[in-house]
Simulated assay, not measured.
Amino acid sequence: MSIESTASAAASGSAATDRFRQSGKTSTVHASQERVNLLASKLVNAVNDIVLEERVTYDEYNAFKAWLIKVGEDGEWPLFLDVWVEHSVEDVATSHRHGNKGSIEGPYYIPEAPEQKSPAKISMRPDEKGTPLLFQGQVRSTDGSPLPNAKIELWHADEEGYYSQFAPGIPEWNLRGSFIADAQGNFHIDTMQPAPYQIPTDGACGQLIAAAGWHAWRPAHLHLKVSAPGHELLTAQLYFPGDPHNEDDIATAVKPELMLDIKPAESGTGVQTTYDFVLDPAS
């Protein structure tokens, strides 16, 4: 049975929810009562303003209530929030930076991927489909100095748009890895070019997309976390020119400075790209 026929929103959502619970990010925020009051009041008031301005009926209200319940039952709150809300949170969190622009983490990050020293090849199936991609560059600080032994965590979808650990039949660490740059901050990673994909559409998020007449597509992208001692962690997604959904990404996460420059590989096989990372010193 193919992956496409067995992957489901419920299974993917459940995995994303479990991973979030295990991530440690669910710890209580130490916010003042005034801050909680401000944010909660604004959220509730915004919802009520929509109800009054758009004359929401009881039928619409009950349909909305039923949909919210279904989001929880399907385990799709991580997907919903990461697709439609996280990009604004990320903009706020990184607005002070002078180095590289970041992007959303998304729901499919798995920590502690197998570590290798660069140059290296990411873990993949012997018959992995797609176009070979050489991803290389340098990690530097904002003052231009190279950051030796910087860590580059890389993960992405396969040619069919599926992530390991979130779809059946894929090896655990397929197309996931952590790579240690050399003494000059240089890295060289052999992987495969990912495909565009639709977020799961057979669950609550798909129900919203269909009802609103939206599309569910994300453009092809690489996920990265880049870190070095004494510097802020950079989380980013990098995109491929020419993708039809760069302009209307369902997650609103594409930025011009995150676009890759893809060229034929010097080896004669596949393609390659060079992308440097500049990290801000930790305050």
Score class of each variant (00 low, 15 high):
245 H>R: 13
42 K>P: 00
223 H>G: 14
275 Y>L: 05
4 E>Y: 01
204 A>R: 09
63 A>T: 09
180 I>N: 07
30 H>I: 11
41 S>F: 00
112 E>N: 14
94 T>M: 10
138 Q>M: 10
192 M>R: 09
20 F>L: 15
37 N>Y: 02
225 K>W: 03
17 T>D: 02
275 Y>T: 01
100 N>M: 06
196 P>K: 01
92 V>Y: 04
31 A>T: 08
178 S>C: 05
224 L>M: 13
194 P>E: 09
265 A>D: 15
166 F>Y: 15
145 S>F: 06
65 K>G: 00
137 G>T: 04
110 I>T: 14
201 T>I: 13
4 E>S: 13
104 I>G: 03
241 P>M: 06
206 G>P: 11
97 R>M: 12
38 L>F: 12
248 D>P: 02
119 P>F: 08
198 Q>V: 00
44 V>F: 11
88 S>A: 13
217 W>N: 14
77 W>Y: 14
51 V>D: 10
198 Q>I: 00
113 A>N: 14
74 D>W: 05
196 P>M: 03
186 N>H: 11
52 L>Q: 10
99 G>I: 02
251 A>P: 01
270 G>F: 07
33 Q>N: 10
69 I>F: 08
49 D>G: 00
208 L>F: 12
147 L>V: 05
159 E>T: 13
60 E>N: 13
32 S>T: 15
50 I>Y: 09
245 H>N: 15
166 F>M: 07
54 E>L: 11
3 I>G: 06
25 K>W: 12
183 A>M: 07
34 E>S: 14
191 T>P: 04
23 S>K: 03
168 P>H: 03
260 L>R: 07
78 P>N: 06
112 E>H: 07
129 K>T: 12
201 T>R: 11
267 S>K: 05
141 S>I: 03
131 T>W: 04
166 F>H: 11
11 A>C: 02
264 P>R: 04
36 V>T: 07
204 A>I: 10
2 S>H: 04
220 A>T: 05
245 H>L: 05
258 L>S: 15
38 L>V: 05
103 S>V: 01
140 R>H: 12
170 I>Q: 08
3 I>F: 08
247 E>Q: 13
127 D>A: 08
165 Q>P: 11
141 S>A: 15
147 L>G: 01
192 M>A: 03
201 T>S: 08
193 Q>T: 12
16 A>G: 09
57 T>K: 00
98 H>L: 09
130 G>D: 13
23 S>M: 10
217 W>C: 02
236 A>L: 01
195 A>G: 05
211 A>Y: 00
